[in-house]
Write a protein that binds this DNA or RNA. Structure first.
Lengths: 223, 223
DNA sequence: GCAAATATAATAGTATTACTATCAATAACG
DNA sequence: CGTTATTGATAGTAATACTATTATATTTGC
């Protein structure tokens, strides 16, 4: 899979950026180093000025790619969920048994990323850390309805609904497939966060356990 | 219950504030109006200057109560979860059957607040809206470990673990009680958010449905 | 190979945010 | 009635979140 992914260009909604960062070395550097810097100091403390210093480039140059740091985070999230979608499709095609397919899908979206799947300038391991720590901030803003209308969260919603399709195959009678999947996807990010920071309210302790919890949950709910 | 609650003073960790807002009219006004203003413009756009204008008071006076807006939000959250804890305790004492007790508990924490339980200066209906929209921001910061050590999230964790106790009564064999409860509590806030803003990835549409979904989920998982 | 177009860097500047400090005015309390 | 605590007003600083302008590279198209 690695080789396939390394050749694949992940498409992100054009409205998210001013100029496509994939089209220039500086753009790629912005993406690459912003991931590292957000992980290092947190999104709240992250500024374009600090990023400029980090990449030896000018603040104003970064503004030519992204309007503001919020949009940059939306871009990184979109990239992440787009990447997830590819992983999902790859892992589930040709599997006939719906239950097995669902287990694969849940595993993909709930497991912690431990390896870096060699996309040249994007460190998936660290990007996953950012998504765990900051993803809800991309949607939880006053502008969510406007941005949703503009398609900023399309890929995320598509990932959810792809899994919803599998859930319906497993049990067409189950009345809450969408809520179940959005609970699993969002919830697993939250469980990873708790594992790291608020250990007393989670049973998950390594990468395996969060996935185990949700595999068990889905099995029980859909039988 | 309303009358009991209106007499009750909810206790919040002293480290969260500079001066206890409950001890003065200005303090109460800060709490009251900050809830309205955060709901109105969102936490990201909320500033002490704007709040000062809104309450006809000086920015610097607000700083005498709260170090910064983050701490104010942590205060509001603590108040909210403390209130939840009271509601939980009231609704579940004297119920013998663990299953019934759990159903009551899940209902309390997952239902949308529709009435204002007459705490003089706090509008619980709007506070609930803020928690839905902004709660994760209180924990998802770079300072979470330090603040957790200082006990900023104690009440929240106590609410979770109180319900965990009931889950264990219902099914002592179930291996993930903490993750289940933290998924339900956090997840229900998320579902309420989706219902409001990203309707295509949730089945919940009114207050009832979110609770129904989680009641059903818990029943299936714990049988 | 050179002109034209494009991308980047450097600098400056503005409005807002997130505070801190100081001092005067007022209210509360014993 | 005087002390103390509380609030208000003003000022000031450093950082943030940008925008605008101009100079300098770099690319590319003919």
């Amino acid at each position: 899979m690695n080789t396939i992914l390394s050749n694949l260009k992940i498409k992100v909604n054009e409205k998210i950026y001013v100029k496509d960062p994939e089209t220039s070395p500086l753009g790629k550097k912005i993406v690459e180093k912003s991931i590292l810097l957000i992980d290092e100091i947190g999104f709240d403390n992250f500024t374009f000025k600090k990023l400029g210093e980090k990449i030896g480039s000018n603040e104003s140059s970064i503004y030519r790619y992204f309007e503001n740091k919020h949009k940059l985070l939306v871009y990184l999230s979109s990239w992440y969920w787009s990447w997830m979608e590819y992983k999902l499709v790859f892992a589930t095609t040709n599997i006939v048994d719906p239950k097995e397919k669902l287990n694969k899908a849940i595993t993909i979206v709930t497991e912690k990323i431990t390896d870096n799947a060699n996309t040249e300038h994007i460190n998936e391991f660290i990007l996953n850390k950012i998504i765990i720590a900051e993803f809800t901030k991309t949607v939880q803003t006053k502008e969510v309805d406007q941005e949703n209308k503009e398609g900023f969260f399309l890929i995320y919603k598509r990932v959810i609904n792809r899994i919803v399709g599998i859930v319906k195959e497993v049990n067409p009678e189950y009345p809450f497939p969408k809520s179940l999947v959005s609970t699993i996807v969002e919830g697993s990010l939250h469980q990873h966060f708790l594992t790291e920071h608020l250990k007393t309210i989670t049973d998950c302790n390594e990468s395996v356990s969060t996935t185990e919890f949700y595999l068990n949950l889905a099995k029980n709910v859909l039988r």
